[in-house]
Computed example of a mutant assay.
Amino acid sequence: MTRITVLGSTNMDLVAYVTTAPRSGETVTGHEFRTIPGGKGANQAVAAARAGAEVAMIGAVGTDDFGRRLRATLEGSGVDIDLLRTTEGPTGTAHIVVDRDGANSIVVIPGANGSVTSLSHADRAVIAEARSLLLQLELPMSAVLEGAEVARRNGVRTILTPAPAQPLPSQLLAATDLLVPNEHEAATLTGISGDPQRAAEALLAQVPEVVITLGARGCLYASRAQSEPVAVLAPPVTAVDTTGAGDTFVGALAVALAEGRPMIDALTWASSAAALSVQRAGAATSMPYRGEIDA
């Protein structure tokens, strides 16, 4: 079975569903509230495990009930949590507002995630044994960079989701094989807004391959090995909640690539996984299993 390691965040998502998201200074009445296991790292781990990989999760939860629930969710999805630390204090939380179109806005409170500043010997060993390492930016940058460098030294493909959007150290970009930003993140990294193709081409100066996710419009793939970016369309669906869709896409993409599928086939398969996830509420709880994606 394909081995994937995820170094990333675990959060409890506190989700309010509203008709229209509030503007600055405005109060609105919602119609539903849920607490749902999430965090970009945990989301990608669950997505990859459900898509058929053997997945190890490196990160941290707190000593509260949220931490216990996150552990149970990951383990229940088949994720190896031996390297998921428990630290004194609260688990990370994400405060999410979802409107009637399924669009969301999010505030993340790091909590226990902030304690992961470096890797243990066991962490480094699990990364070295993987086919792919999935990284995001909800852990301290020191740990993210260390993970990427361990992967590079051991020939492990590093897939980086640059979220929350922020300038990236040159050392991290140098150790990244595939960068997967959304449109907003690509614009933050390049200063190019409203033109994903130009943004993708600019990012190729820093990494060998880029996939910019475009929501309902699919994604755009660019590589130093080809002359023009390639667009891959997403299946047309009615979105209920887009929370975790990008993480579903990345988790499924990592599995497909680790299995040796050609990039365009892998992107199509990952787009199908994301399209399934947005038709259900929540992040990790909405992610499809391999049989559903294949169908």
Rank of each mutant, 00 (worst) to 15 (best):
H31F: 15
I58H: 03
L70N: 12
A49H: 01
A60K: 05
V79E: 07
F66V: 12
R71C: 03
L70R: 01
G76Q: 00
A60T: 11
L70D: 02
M57R: 05
G41L: 02
G76K: 06
G67I: 02
G92A: 13
V61L: 08
R85Q: 14
L74P: 03
P37Y: 01
N43I: 10
S77P: 07
D80H: 11
G39L: 06
T87G: 03
A53I: 12
E75G: 01
T35E: 15
R69F: 04
G62R: 00
D64K: 08
A53K: 03
A56V: 14
G41A: 08
G41D: 06
G92H: 07
D64Y: 09
L74K: 05
R71K: 14
D65Y: 04
A51M: 13
H31P: 03
K40Q: 09
G89F: 04
Q44N: 02
F66G: 04
G52L: 04
R85D: 09
L84K: 00
G78S: 12
P90T: 06
G38E: 04
G67H: 06
A53R: 03
A53L: 13
G39F: 01
D80Y: 11
G76L: 02
I58M: 12
T87Q: 03
H31T: 14
E32C: 09
S77T: 03
L84C: 02
G59T: 08
R69S: 12
T35F: 04
E32H: 15
A60I: 07
K40P: 08
G89R: 02
T63M: 07
G41V: 04
T86N: 00
V55Q: 06
G67M: 07
L84T: 02
V79H: 09
I81A: 05
F33D: 10
G52P: 01
G76R: 08
H31G: 13
R68E: 12
T87I: 06
G39W: 06
D80N: 15
T63D: 13
G62F: 04
R50C: 01
G92D: 11
E88W: 04
T73G: 08
D80P: 06
A51C: 14
P90Q: 11
G89N: 10
Q44W: 01
P90C: 02
R85L: 02
E75V: 05
A53H: 09
G76C: 04
G41F: 02
K40D: 00
A60V: 07
V46W: 00
D65I: 10
F66A: 12
F66Y: 15
G67S: 14
